[in-house]
Design a protein around this nucleic acid. Structure first.
Lengths: 330, 330
DNA sequence: ATGAAAGCGCTAACAA
DNA sequence: TTGTTAGCGCTTTCAT
């Protein structure tokens, strides 16, 4: 910028004003300065500018993952979410900075905030960090979390109606005369916990002959779920349905069932959760609970911008929709 | 930082050194300073630090998209790539900043570089920006591009052997007695151009009775390709195979064929390109040319870090592998 | 309308 | 070992 000032024969402050399109600078001079800048390929250094302005034009997207047990960043659900986020954030003229956080390091959030890297923060999934979020929310406003709504929660979440979705899934299975319904997944973290708890409650209210709730513990990766499902099958217990905590592991479950020579949906019905893109194209296609990610992301970004403007915003729960396909027909 | 200095009764420079773990600071004092910082939740402001150090600990990932015609950011291929990138970049302790660029604005790259937002840049797909990349590469080293290798190219690319992959696909179709093979897609941009050119050349060298190369123009989105394919079918031309420029549009083609009452692979064989996650799960499952994205991304990041260290690195072309599935059996 | 000067929060060369 | 000082590149108040 000093260069440009010298070339234009003015002070840097004038260049700064001109480049900002300030009407304080004489029109002709402004044009000239801009032309010189363009010719020399000069662009304002955004780091310096941000330091001065105390803002970054950047939103941070954070994915807290429990080491080794959670989904990888390449999980289709996350990745679809990232795509929508990138789209929504760049559309607003902001940059998106992605960070993965491997827990447990409870200072991750305060560190991120204090580091001044971002004007606002999106957290994808509460994971086990409810308390961290609670305490931070008291002092830091521009934060929106994707996840489940927890009673007494002080931070702003956007998420799907997990209990509603889980209930729809289990009731659908019951209605199609399934009675021994297993839950596949890892109910750590509020969202999956809600799905699991509702699954249990719904079964307990089921018709006579409904089997007990039964958890098949499996981390939320394709491979882990495949192994877990296969292991369970080989134990020889009888069951006629699986409600999986996510589509990724539902698909793995179908693979495991096929490996074991069981037919889906004849022997075992399978219902997933998320409705990721693959779900409609598997064989058999997957019955699942749909989360409207695109709308969810739009909502998160809208809320975040309001919060960056100092507005308090309430949490939003979006309806979950059961999509009936071949893996669990009526 | 000034606060911490006051509390510790030392000068800010001492705090700076202590927090950086400098051995110049007396061990006891260092501990004390760090303790105070921790207690007060102090974290170094990275914007200021970056301004001072002239680095950002951030890599920019740029996706140049031709307005309206190219894939959206939510395309499964991009999105998988983003996931791998996020994983690889965060693993190195860097942040990843994602930008979407809508062309034509040929200054996008120089602007990004001059703005000092990133220590290195990954460009996903050359799109129509070969010339832009050529000129920038002369002065800016830390840049790696995902895309096709073009003779005389001065920038560093990592990409799949598009000609090899296309040839394998077409030869496979010819070997399975298909003779009227259509190409579905939009051969703008080097990668798709290479696939299309090789398709033509391979057909021209095909056995007697091989039909002429034939392009069904379609933008690379699911909907556009569906419409394009359906339109072509309705023209009533005879054909027995489709080689699609990407899996996304190959899947659309299969849908269109089904809509038109044609059987895949009986009436028409379909081969895609990419091997996205869905490909193995469609009905029928999709024969396609696999790109090893995970390895590709690892390679890009490795090369980029070398370039950030000032090293010139050559381009890398990775083998393409034909994955034969049901949509085009042997 | 323009320039001078201060300062955003930090690091590092230099001095003590 | 610690403090002093300069300066990264910019914006903005204040003075002219």
């Amino acid at each position: 910028m000093a260069d440009i000032a010298r070339l234009a024969g003015v002070h840097v402050s004038t260049v700064s004003r001109a480049l900002a399109g300030s009407p304080l600078v004489e029109a002709g001079k402004r044009e000239q300065i801009m032309r010189i800048a363009r010719e020399r390929g000069y662009v304002v250094n955004s780091v310096a500018r941000n330091l001065r302005l105390k803002r970054t034009q950047t939103l941070s997207v954070v994915v807290p993952l429990q080491h080794e047990r959670g989904q990888p960043l390449t999980d289709p659900f996350f990745v679809a979410m990232l795509g929508y986020l990138a789209e929504a954030i760049t559309q607003r003229g902001y940059g998106m900075a992605l960070q993965k956080v491997v827990l447990p390091t409870h200072e991750w959030l305060t560190t991120l905030i204090a580091s001044g890297r971002a004007d606002g923060i999106i957290v994808i999934g509460q994971s086990t960090e409810h308390e961290t979020l609670q305490s931070v929310a008291q002092t830091y406003l521009p934060l929106v979390v994707w996840g489940g709504h927890i009673p007494g929660q002080r931070y702003c979440t956007v998420g799907t109606d997990n209990p509603g979705g889980a209930r729809a899934a289990v009731q659908h299975l019951l209605k199609s005369a399934r009675r021994r319904i297993m839950f596949l997944g890892d109910p750590t973290g509020p969202e999956l916990r809600q799905r699991y708890d509702t699954y249990r409650r719904t079964l307990e209210e089921g018709p006579r002959g409904t089997g007990k709730p039964r958890l098949i513990p499996a981390h939320l990766t394709a491979d882990a779920a495949y192994e877990a499902m296969l292991g369970f099958i080989r134990k020889g217990e009888r069951f006629d349905a699986v409600f999986a905590a996510s589509d990724v592991i539902a698909i793995s479950a179908m693979r495991a069932l096929a490996t074991a020579g069981l037919s889906v949906p004849k022997d075992v019905a399978v219902v997933g959760f998320d409705d990721i893109a693959i779900a409609a194209h598997t064989t058999p296609s997957l019955t699942t609970v749909r989360q409207d990610l695109e709308r969810g992301v739009r909502t998160m970004i809208d809320l975040l911008f309001k919060r960056m403007d100092g507005e308090e915003t309430p949490s939003v729960t979006m309806p979950a929709e059961l999509i009936v396909r071949e893996s669990a027909p009526l």
